[in-house]
Design a protein around this nucleic acid. Structure first.
Lengths: 258, 258
DNA sequence: GTACCTGTTG
DNA sequence: CAACAGGTAC
């Protein structure tokens, strides 16, 4: 079973790229983030024509997540199932082929100590709470998405330049460790323990040309699922050419029947 | 010598189309209107790479005219040479290959009797004054551009619907006749005396699909130049496809050495 | 830099 | 409908 995640930064602008990418890489399940579209704007027909069904949590202008699958999947939740309502569309929780999968768009956080940074950390708290309440570390479960966290200095081309940013600062890396501590493994890092891989390059300042990248898009898996991971890669080519997303897709193959 | 005129409605948005069109039709001289760009935003390099030199009168957001030529041309004026300064970039007066050519963007006029309509008629007065002061009807001279005038009912698909508009009303058609009275011939109409040809279709109300067009882009020539006109056409195909200008190019071939 | 918003113009 | 402005977000 091939599982992938991609922050497409507008599913409408990226529709052609998305369909071409699905055709080339044929994931069994693809998590999308930053749709920047409400459900009515989602390209349902084109995705269906490409052989995928979609579960979508839309929002105007910002956020929005989806899960595309080749076979039907069961939607478990489109928001937190406990506590106050989250006004932002950042979570989609499904079951597919015996695996539970969450498509996640963790808040960026803007500036350290800003209101948005406080919201980011609270959001990660709620994610851990959601797992504690609804999941177990011994089931087959994957968290896929844009975490807006580069876990270590290995995950940044220029660690010093990013050290104090909302993506790399100690506080957020601490939150990352707490999340993993629930019982999750960073699958790409498990497969590639020392390789410098990046999944995001800023549109500004020639980020991609200078390869000033960060690895902030991840597939986290519980131990029994992580043990089935065979291969993993970041499709850096997808950041090239005209009108790319600022993120590249992350792909993992698991030794599971589709 | 092939002379053409095209209101491109933003030279930046239309850059690809412009270069492709130059490649296909190879005019010796092309007048452009509605650049909607200042000189620094003009695609100098791409135009040069396509084998053309450019004379440009830019303006931010609105207006802006240019003349593109395969050989160097002499700029005679970038605004009125007599009277008060015109704050709008609507005129470029050049000499090329023994012919004097003006690239003109006549004001639209908005609504009849509005301030903008008064400005439109005053602008046409100044154009006639400019000719009287600087040109002679017996020289080789062409006025090319978006005149925002459909001279007769033959020049509108739905004359009745447009009769009282700023493009067709009696007052503006009177101004048109005064302009021609200086000593100019409508070359496209000379070549095609009875054909319904249109050069502009509103983006709104399915204007192009319903062919609700007007002929408002023109090539006017003095008698000695008009006598050399061989063929003329409106490139209606250029209004088709993705991201077209609302205007189509108008092309005239003259029996003159290039 | 890219994409979104609202508002204006034609 | 399609371009602009000026704004936000990442």
């Amino acid at each position: 079973m091939r599982i992938a995640t991609w922050n497409v930064n507008s599913v409408r602008i990226r529709q052609e790229r998305l369909l071409a990418w699905l055709g080339r890489h044929q994931p069994d399940l693809l998590c999308l983030q930053e749709l920047k579209a409400v459900e009515a704007e989602f390209p349902w027909q084109a995705v269906a024509d490409a052989g995928y069904q979609a579960a979508v949590v839309g929002q105007k202008t910002y956020n929005g997540v989806a899960v595309l699958t080749k076979q039907p999947c069961e939607v478990l939740a489109k928001t937190w199932t406990h506590g106050d309502e989250d006004p932002q569309a950042r979570l989609l929780d499904v079951r597919f082929g015996g695996v539970r999968v969450l498509s996640l768009y963790v808040p960026n956080g803007s500036e350290v100590d800003s209101d948005k940074f406080v919201y980011k950390r609270a959001w990660l708290d709620r994610l851990i709470d959601h797992l504690e309440r609804t999941a177990r570390p011994d089931e087959l479960l994957a968290l896929c998405g844009d975490f807006n966290i580069a876990p270590t200095d290995l995950d940044a081309r220029n660690p010093a330049a990013w050290r104090d940013s909302v993506l790399c600062c100690d506080a957020i890396r601490g939150d990352w460790q707490r999340l993993l501590g629930w019982g999750l493994t960073d699958v790409v890092r498990q497969i590639h323990p020392t390789e410098r891989l990046y999944s995001w390059w800023d549109y500004r300042n020639l980020g991609f040309i200078k390869n000033d990248g960060l690895r902030i898009d991840h597939v986290l898996a519980t131990a029994p699922l992580a043990a089935l991971a065979q291969t993993a890669f970041v499709d850096r080519d997808e950041r090239k050419g005209g009108k790319p997303s600022d993120h590249a897709p992350v792909v993992v193959d698991f030794a599971l029947p589709t």
